[in-house]
Design a protein around this nucleic acid. Sequence first.
DNA 1: TGATTAAGTTAGCTCCAGCTAATAATTACG
DNA 2: CGTAATTATTAGCTGGAGCTAACTTAATCA
Lengths: 135, 135
Amino acid sequence: MTPDRQASHFRRARQARETEIIEDYVELVADLIDEQGEARAVDIAKRLGVTGATVNKMLARLKQMDLINTEPYRSVFLTDEGRLMAEKSRRRHHIVVALLRAVGVDEESAWADAEGLEHRCSAETLAAFEKFLKR
Amino acid sequence: MTPDRQASHFRRARQARETEIIEDYVELVADLIDEQGEARAVDIAKRLGVTGATVNKMLARLKQMDLINTEPYRSVFLTDEGRLMAEKSRRRHHIVVALLRAVGVDEESAWADAEGLEHRCSAETLAAFEKFLKR
DNA sequence: TGATTAAGTTAGCTCCAGCTAATAATTACG
DNA sequence: CGTAATTATTAGCTGGAGCTAACTTAATCA
């Protein structure tokens, strides 16, 4: 492997590291809205295992990026763009869990690892996973 | 899924995010030593796609952690602990690439994605991958 | 209603991994 | 050998994501 090609892989991994937290928040907001009718900061914090202050700061960033809408002391809503991102994330999440299960990973490990893996699969890899699952 | 269980998954993902950069450096040092006889900072920088200054700072951290030995203006050596980590990383890397290839991911995507995925697979998942590959 | 509790917000801190720019040491070569 | 090019180091900056502590607002319930 040439240094350049390897460098581009590492660059991509760094890029993924940056976006994955954002995707986790957005996906979680969608989950909470579906499960409980609304996404409250305190619930996001509980599920992510971080403090409310951290959530608050991140929500400000997501709003800046036009992924969510927030009003002070009100729960969180997804913008169209945010909903799109959440749906993509969810789809990836499900494919990864299914693939892991299909190759023999136990239920618990599949769910635990999928949280880390879902953000790192390229479109090509996900397509291959889907094809494999249909086989 | 309970909030607590989900929180622990996210916690684990955050933990992995912290260690993965360290593992990348250590694995790369091992690769360079094997391929070229020595690991020089400039080559590490080229392959990771970061600046020399960044590498230097990171090497100081790795030394602090007893993963490498360095002397000013000399190339980098792995400690026993570092070598162990490098071997574990490599093994994981190979298993992940092999698994991706086995389920139909093309060569290039497999190598590119493995860079991000290898650090996120639990021991259970890797064991399942190996079992699947032997099948 | 009013007091208590829960939730959200803000300020300000840490640590990490990038970066640039400037400097110092080493290496290579005419 | 001495100079030029390469490599390494250092200082100091940015921005992200976590934290605690202090505060404000909203919600609950006696």
